[in-house]
C-alpha cells in the first residue's frame, strides 16, 4: 500500500485499530528502512501495540510507547518520544490512537506539528459489527466526535468490519455497502478493506483494495 510519512489510525473503541496498525507497520517496513509504530492509547490498559514488541524488535521497527503500557499500571500516560514522530522527518510512522473521542484527545498534543508538515493520512477504522457503529449514521457520529477531540480531520476510511475469529467472507462482503455509504456521506475515500489473511483468497476477486491482516495475539 502507499503511505504518507505519518499514518494515523483512529476509530471507535474495539474497531480493531491496533491490529490494523501493527499490520500496516509490517507492510511499511517492507517498503522503507526507518519505520516506527507509536502507541498513543490513553484509554485501554489491556490490548496494546506493545503486545507485539518482540516482533517489532525482530523486524527492526521502532516501538514508541509509554513505559506503563501493558504494565498493569492503570494510568493514562504518553511516551516522551512522541515528539520524535514530528521532529525526525526521515522516519515513517504509524500512529495507533486510543478509541473514540476520549482516546483521540491525546492526538491534540501533536496535531499542530502534523498539520504544519502536512505529510500525513488520518484513517478512520470502521467495523459494522460493533454495536455502536452498526449503521453509517452512528458511525459518522463517532467520526465527528473524534475529529473534534483530535483537532484534525480524517482523510480516508479503513473498512475493518469483522466478528473476530468467527468472521466469514460473507460478513466482509456484507460490510462493503456500509463502508460505501459512509464514504459517500463523508466524501472520504476507502483506503482499504482489511481482512484476516485466511479470508483473502476467498475475497480477492470480490472486493477491491483488500489489505490482508495477521491477527495480533497477546502472549504473556
Amino acid at each position: 500500500m502507499i503511505y504518507k510519512r505519518i499514518t494515523l489510525l483512529c476509530g471507535h473503541y474495539g474497531s480493531g485499530k491496533t491490529n490494523v496498525a501493527v499490520n500496516m507497520a509490517y507492510d511499511l517496513k517492507n517498503q522503507f528502512e526507518k519505520v516506527a509504530i507509536a502507541d498513543l492509547d490513553i484509554v485501554n490498559p489491556y490490548f496494546r501495540t506493545k503486545d507485539s514488541a518482540k516482533e517489532f524488535k525482530e523486524k527492526g521497527i521502532e516501538l514508541i510507547c509509554s513505559d506503563y503500557a501493558g504494565s498493569n499500571v492503570d494510568i493514562p500516560a504518553l511516551p516522551q518520544q512522541i515528539y520524535s514522530i514530528c521532529d525526525q522527518k526521515d522516519k515513517r510512522v504509524i500512529i495507533d490512537v486510543g478509541g473514540d473521542d476520549r482516546g483521540a484527545l491525546a492526538l491534540g498534543r501533536i496535531a499542530p506539528s502534523i498539520l504544519e508538515e502536512n505529510d500525513y493520512e488520518m484513517l478512520f477504522v470502521i467495523n459494522c459489527f460493533r454495536p455502536l457503529t452498526r449503521d453509517a449514521d452512528s458511525t459518522i457520529e463517532v467520526m465527528r466526535e473524534i475529529e473534534y477531540a483530535a483537532n484534525m480531520k480524517f482523510t480516508a476510511i479503513v473498512n475493518n468490519s469483522n466478528l473476530g475469529e468467527e468472521t466469514k467472507a460473507d460478513d466482509v462482503l456484507k460490510s462493503l455497502s456500509y463502508a460505501d455509504e459512509i464514504s459517500k456521506k463523508t466524501g472520504l475515500p476507502i483506503k482499504c478493506t482489511s481482512v484476516y489473511n485466511i479470508l483473502y483468497e476467498d475475497l480477492k476477486d470480490k472486493a477491491s483494495d483488500l489489505f490482508p491482516l495477521n491477527l495480533q495475539k497477546k502472549i504473556n
Partner: peptide, 9 residues
Amino acid sequence: MADKVLMKG
C-alpha cells in the same frame, strides 16, 4: 444489519 455483533463482555 448484522445478526451478531462483536462485543466486549
